[in-house]
Design a protein around this nucleic acid. Structure first.
Lengths: 255, 255
DNA sequence: TCAACTTTGTGCATCCGTTCACAAGGGGCT
DNA sequence: AGCCCCTTGTGAACGGATGCACAAAGTTGA
């Protein structure tokens, strides 16, 4: 493993989990544990311990054998890898109820994302305050975004307006977009796009719910153990007390 | 392929895309096309045509060779498979800004999800109206949810309250949960859980953004073509005009 | 009726992600 | 010092998902 450069193509799946570990690490830190084992972190993040170790190995970070990971160090390494140490300016378009909720969402500011400007096309919205920000007309978007060198955009408009807004954001220099509008967006190469469709999540739940109540056995697959061996009768005692043996975790479908 | 029973264990990845196809089909229908090819649908849904065909084949649905898929039929089949034909009652807990936005989100009602009750623990929220609904105290949750046989719950509380609320929902009979609180929830087997963490999405974007501006080449991998053969020089003319040749789609990371 | 064309359905190879299982490394107690 | 135990890091097997490429099937037009 290359120990010096932490920039060695981290798998997508791992990148998607790093924020999870970060969240878990904060819990562990608040519990007062200076170190945490992969098992402890796994429990707090709701994943498999081996996955944690493999994921963290991509960062080139060192755990201490026999001990675990230093919470402070690991927190800092993950933050660095995610690029959270510098703050990011964010522009949000669409100040409907969802847009307002997002603008005020504390979880963004906590992680270094500062919403710098909010836009809408409805003239009666323009000029009103959303939190500390004044809603600007979407016509202003190009200048404002370009002038402030904002790199991240959030789209919370109706689907009809989304592609248009998207194009404008990109023209103004935005290179990462989080889309809440329920539609497919097309972006040029070099621009990253992620989407959150609230209704889709419910529909996926609906599928599983539907097939639970179905006459014949639904699609559910039993957690079948692969090799007959090794049900670890001894429960690994984690350093942190954060092993919530509550109940089994569900197969939360993707991600 | 089993043509008669459409209930033959659909892969997770496919289930997650079905709502996407449904959305695309509505677009196509509004455009007035009675049929659509896999290529047309793929373009509208932002995925690969082969994937569309394979996905749809799991439903046991028939496309018509030489023609494509009948839009109305396919819409109905996907809806049926997702269990969207009957409506679902939904309980929402946590009437903060996000909770309010979700309660009023039109996309839910459109797809057959009716929010039947909203709860909060803040006494000054209780009794206020959110849309047509009156906020009830979370103490009422067990009775209300059980009495109305609500199967789906949405958690939009702060992280600290989430596990507690989750347990109560399950005790009251909910078997599918959509969690917006930024924390890991543990649920017993048989209960399905999906999560949406808004901050995590931004952090993933941050990672890519960060590595774009890095001195050496970032993590981006070129779209390298596998076999040297067959760049289809002829553009497949879809029946629907919905082939938006705009720009290349990004590698929207997961999902 | 027949030929050319369109589009589906799917076998297959490949890739990515997951998880097991184990060797190697360190810490601490005696 | 030496032993034991804990934990990391990773090789390797496995399974699921993706996407190509092609045969089968049906349509259209002459």
């Amino acid at each position: 493993m290359s120990t010096l450069e932490p920039v060695t193509s981290i798998p997508q799946a791992t990148v998607a989990r790093l924020p999870l570990y970060l969240r878990a690490l904060h819990q562990v830190a608040e519990a007062g544990n200076p170190t945490v084992s992969s098992a402890g972190l796994a429990a707090a993040a709701g994943v498999n311990p081996a996955k944690v170790r493999k994921d963290l190995s991509y960062l080139g970070s060192y755990g201490m054998r026999g001990i675990g990971y230093d919470v402070a160090t690991l927190t800092q390494q993950i933050s660095a890898s995610l690029g959270l140490e510098r703050g990011w300016g964010v522009a949000l378009v669409g100040v409907g109820r969802l847009g307002q909720a997002l603008t005020n969402y504390a979880g963004f500011a906590n992680r270094g994302f500062a919403i710098k400007a909010v836009f809408d096309s409805a003239t009666d919205q323009v000029g009103t305050k959303v939190g500390p920000l004044t809603v600007q007309h979407v016509n202003e978007l190009p200048q404002v975004v370009a002038a402030q060198k904002i790199a991240i955009g959030i789209i919370a408009t109706p689907a009809e307006a989304a592609q248009d807004v998207c194009d404008q954001l990109i023209a103004a220099g935005v290179t990462s977009i989080l889309n809440f509008a329920p539609c497919v967006l097309f972006v040029p190469k070099g621009v990253d796009l992620r989407k959150v469709d609230l209704a889709i999540e419910l529909q996926i739940l609906s599928y599983h719910e539907h097939h639970k109540t179905l006459p014949d056995r639904g699609t559910r697959l039993a957690p079948r153990r692969r090799r007959g061996s090794s049900v670890p009768s001894r429960r690994t005692r984690a350093i942190s007390g954060a092993l919530p043996t509550r109940t089994t975790r569900t197969k939360a479908v993707d991600e």
